[in-house]
């Protein structure tokens, strides 16, 4: 299925975009990360969390949304 990956903050400099669609056949957040690590070699060295449906996920979380967000460390306030 096609899913949209959104990138924020410094991650936009790693990927060169703020969002993109990828063809995805896995089931978990871990699988999404594996696909992205293949595509962007330096992403693995970056500190980030993954969210879908506006909630943070772990590697084991199943993909239930067509939109996944990669969030670097927060800097609000």
């Amino acid at each position: 299925m096609m899913i949209t990956i959104r990138y924020f903050g410094l991650l936009t400099e790693v990927t060169g975009c703020t969002s993109e669609k990828i063809n995805f056949s896995g089931t978990t957040i871990f699988d999404v990360k594996e696909v992205l690590f293949q595509k962007y070699k330096t992403l693995k060295n970056k500190d980030f969390q993954v969210a879908q449906n506006n909630e943070l996920n772990t590697d084991k979380t199943k993909i239930t949304s067509t939109e996944i967000a990669l969030l670097p460390p927060f800097a609000g306030g």
Binding site: F8, G9, L10, A69, L71, F74, A75, G76, G77
Partner: peptide, 14 residues
């Protein structure tokens, strides 16, 4: 409230 904002709200600062 301020500590929660700093820890939980996805805001990024360049």
């Amino acid at each position: 409230i301020v500590e929660e904002i700093k820890a939980k709200v996805p805001i990024f600062g360049k």
